Deep mutational scan, measured.
Amino acid sequence: MAEQVALSRTQVCGILREELFQGDAFHQSDTHIFIIMGASGDLAKKKIYPTIWWLFRDGLLPENTFIVGYARSRLTVADIRKQSEPFFKATPEEKLKLEDFFARNSYVAGQYDDAASYQRLNSHMNALHLGSQANRLFYLALPPTVYEAVTKNIHESCMSQIGWNRIIVEKPFGRDLQSSDRLSNHISSLFREDQIYRIDHYLGKEMVQNLMVLRFANRIFGPIWNRDNIACVILTFKEPFGTEGRGGYFDEFGIIRDVMQNHLLQMLCLVAMEKPASTNSDDVRDEKVKVLKCISEVQANNVVLGQYVGNPDGEGEATKGYLDDPTVPRGSTTATFAAVVLYVENERWDGVPFILRCGKALNERKAEVRLQFHDVAGDIFHQQCKRNELVIRVQPNEAVYTKMMTKKPGMFFNPEESELDLTYGNRYKNVKLPDAYERLILDVFCGSQMHFVRSDELREAWRIFTPLLHQIELEKPKPIPYIYGSRGPTEADELMKRVGFQYEGTYKWVNP
């Protein structure tokens, strides 16, 4: 592979701008107003304001973009700056750019259920340069409990009458099928589907988006991507930290609602779906819905739930269990780990287990898709061969690698495990991989909904998990304890083995 010439960040961002501006969906010269509902909250200060700053800094926003914060707290732009700027990672050389960014910011205080507050917000936006005809993007960085009041008031008082209007809704989209349907029906009564952007930030990850290209742009994968060759698929999300004093919020939802029903299920769809007619948003989402419709409700015998306990040999936070978090209700049975087996009941995947695993306070930070292939028929190497695996590593250190057998150097035919490896950090030294939120917010500006969740996708996802969630809430089974920093409950490994996964433990990928 030829040595790549190092590029400056300015040059890299210039390439990104060229890609972005050559499309006809990006209205570079139009006025846009980006409204952050819930501007005083954690999500706004840690993710949304920093993301908008990065896009502005790199010249990736339309030229005439204004940012308006809205929340109940009586704040000023200076207050917003004070709480969000520490997350910007701005350099001293960017000081003038930073001043320009905050000059485009404003803030309006108001209630979430008060019509007069929204009329005041609308008047404020109209007073901005060309504000009355601007395109408006409303980001709901809010708890779902206020979605209905907020969307109703936005629709009645704050819509642009000339430009387009788009609304970005953060997960969780309800707690179960019934609450999700209620919320979807409410929002759909106010906005068209092409105006609604239900954001799952995992769909903005580079390697998640790469799944489609790997599958449908490489001839070698087509013939082997089926039940005849693939023994099982494992989708993993692991965090090495616990709730760390923020367990009160987590306890309301648990690990299945927080990660599995959305992030992991979306990745499953991209692995299992048929080739779409095109890369058009609805063509892709149509195929994802077909996959979900082929999955039956989760069966309790295919589920393992766990909850982390303190590690007596650990240090600091590792010595504390979930129930030691003062914000967690006493005696909570909320799971911090889950392993679930699903089956896609169609011709391509009949009988292939899709194993979804996620948890907190585990032994490493990792998100990946792992396809394990069947054993080689007619073994001539005296059971020395391990199964081939194709691994798409989402985070950290984005990579695609194939675990395969090669001859060990020497005189004899002794096979050993090795890999074919594409590590993004080595291959793409001159490429700026956008943060997931950067990519998705740019998608909203461009009107691309491919990486957002459609209402029928959402409904099918909740259909699969709601009976299990209701059973857990009714019966309150005690989750299996696992030690902070471990791989999780051993019962999860036993479940995976029972459905056909072979864990060798003899080879570990190392970032080159």
Rank of each mutant, 00 (worst) to 15 (best):
L7P: 09
R9P: 08
T10V: 13
E19S: 15
F21R: 13
D24E: 13
D24T: 13
D24N: 13
A25V: 14
I33T: 12
F34Y: 06
I35C: 05
I36F: 05
A39Y: 04
A44N: 01
K45G: 05
K46R: 11
T51Q: 02
I52E: 00
L60H: 06
L61S: 01
L61I: 11
T65P: 05
I67S: 02
T76L: 06
V77Q: 08
D79A: 14
I80V: 15
I80F: 07
R81F: 13
Q83V: 11
F87R: 05
F88V: 05
A90N: 10
T91K: 15
E93S: 07
K95F: 09
L98M: 15
E99M: 08
F101Q: 00
F101L: 01
R104P: 00
V108Q: 11
Y112H: 06
A116F: 10
S117E: 14
S123T: 13
S123Y: 15
L128M: 11
S132K: 14
S132Y: 14
A141E: 00
P143R: 00
T145C: 05
A149L: 12
V150M: 06
T151Q: 06
I154Y: 01
E156M: 09
M159Y: 10
S160V: 05
I162N: 10
G163N: 11
G163E: 06
G163R: 14
N165G: 12
N165M: 15
I167R: 00
G174I: 02
R175A: 09
D176E: 05
Q178I: 13
Q178G: 12
S179N: 06
S180A: 08
D181Q: 14
R182L: 15
S184F: 12
S184C: 14
H186W: 06
H186Q: 13
I187W: 08
S189G: 14
D194C: 08
Q195V: 06
R198L: 01
I199N: 09
D200V: 01
H201A: 00
Y202A: 03
K205T: 00
Q209H: 07
R219M: 05
F221W: 15
G222C: 13
W225T: 03
N229Q: 08
C232E: 06
K238M: 06
F241A: 07
G245T: 07
G245E: 10
G247H: 06
Y249A: 00
Y249S: 01
D251A: 13
I256T: 08
R257H: 05
